[in-house]
């Protein structure tokens, strides 16, 4: 085969990838349609639960970007979730902003807070970062209850707010509309995260996780990328917090305990570390498993969480998404 033939072979493959891209877009639309369907099928309480599962999936996605893809272990993402929720709640209840206007503000504030946490995190290796974020998670409710900011946060009582009204042209009730809002905002974030991870930046993040020295030698600016990964991650989790504030119509310090950060972490491990799709499973897990376990005993969710977490780490370290990937690969091998 001559060199000319080889170079000629390259453009021939192009159309194929566009077809794959088109197929992917179709798949994505189908997935979105499937995601919207429950809005018309479920009762309002089940729909609320599903809304929360979507929101949790978004929060897990945020954690996955910094911990899964960039290898910076955060046990304190509940803090960013809380910041997002409180930004939205304060703007809506004190200043009468509309929900949509609070979203960009919440994203920016959470991004800045994430940047602020990510900066000292640079100096902390894996375990120390886990430790610091762990203490952040434990301290959050206390900070939120503090008297100095009580006028804004409502102290222990928290703040009440209302769901965004469905637009007048649309035949939805508020619960359905809330679900659609959560799905659309989350879908947009998932798409953005997907593009980020599949591109140059995503590869750089993973290179830094797997071999920082080699990554630096290849010219990656580790400090900048790590802090920005933290900021992006905090932003996504913060948006999830904003959504949860309006979905629950209430924020209070005790909704953002250390248990929240831990369940995001468990959701990430169970769904699949460093997997976009895994975050979705993680969200469903975080919401539904404790509900089922709680029927056994008040303490059961924690114990079952712990057992499932350790079980996954021992048996399926790449999570549910990894299991699906392997089953799919085996099925394809079997078929071909």
């Amino acid at each position: 085969m001559s060199a000319a033939e080889q170079t000629a072979a390259v453009p021939l493959r192009r159309p194929e990838t566009t077809v794959a891209g088109w197929q992917r877009a179709a798949l994505l639309l189908a997935g979105l349609a499937l995601a919207i369907l429950p809005a018309f099928l479920l009762e309002s309480f089940q729909l609320f639960q599903l809304t929360m599962a979507v929101i949790m999936a978004l929060a897990v996605l945020g954690l996955n970007i910094v911990t899964g893809y960039n290898g910076q272990i955060s046990l304190g993402h509940g803090a960013f979730f809380a910041v997002g929720a409180y930004v939205t709640a304060i703007l809506m209840s004190h200043l009468d902003w509309s929900f949509w206007a609070t979203l960009p503000v919440s994203a920016v504030v959470c991004g800045l807070v994430g940047y602020g946490v990510g900066f000292p995190a640079l100096r902390l290796g894996g375990l120390y970062l886990a430790l610091t974020t762990f203490s952040l998670a434990v301290a959050v409710p206390q900070i939120l209850k503090h008297k100095a900011i009580e006028d804004w946060t409502g102290g222990v009582q928290g703040l009440f707010l209302v769901k965004p009204d469905p637009p007048s042209w649309a035949p939805f009730d508020p619960d359905q509309w809330m679900y659609l809002v959560a799905v659309l905002v989350s879908a947009a974030c998932f798409l953005l995260a997907w593009n980020l991870i599949r591109g140059r930046i995503g590869r750089a993040l993973m290179a830094i996780r797997d071999h920082p020295t080699a990554a630096e030698a290849m010219g990656m600016d580790i400090a900048t990328l790590k802090t920005r990964a933290f900021a992006t991650s905090a932003m996504i989790t913060g948006i999830a917090g904003s959504l949860s504030a309006v979905a629950v119509e209430f924020v209070a310090p005790d909704s953002f305990t250390f248990a929240l950060s831990i369940s995001l972490f468990v959701g990430m491990v169970v769904g699949g570390v460093a997997s976009i799709l895994g975050s979705l499973f993680g969200g469903l897990f975080v919401l539904f498993v404790p509900n089922i376990a709680e029927t056994v005993s008040k303490a059961a969710p924690g114990v079952i969480y712990g057992i499932i977490l350790i079980g996954f780490l021992f048996i399926l370290p790449d999570g549910f998404a990894g299991l699906l990937r392997r089953l799919y690969a085996r099925a394809r091998r079997g078929a071909g």
């Binding site: 290898g71 894996g126 375990l127 924690g302 114990v303 977490l309 350790i310």
Partner: peptide
């Protein structure tokens, strides 16, 4: 010999099991 993330995960799992088990 697993990565740090696994260790942190196991510690957290242990915390959840022992903490909630004690309450139970």
């Amino acid at each position: 010999n697993a990565p740090v993330l696994t260790h942190v995960g196991v510690f957290i799992g242990l915390l959840l099991i022992i903490g909630n088990g004690t309450g139970w």
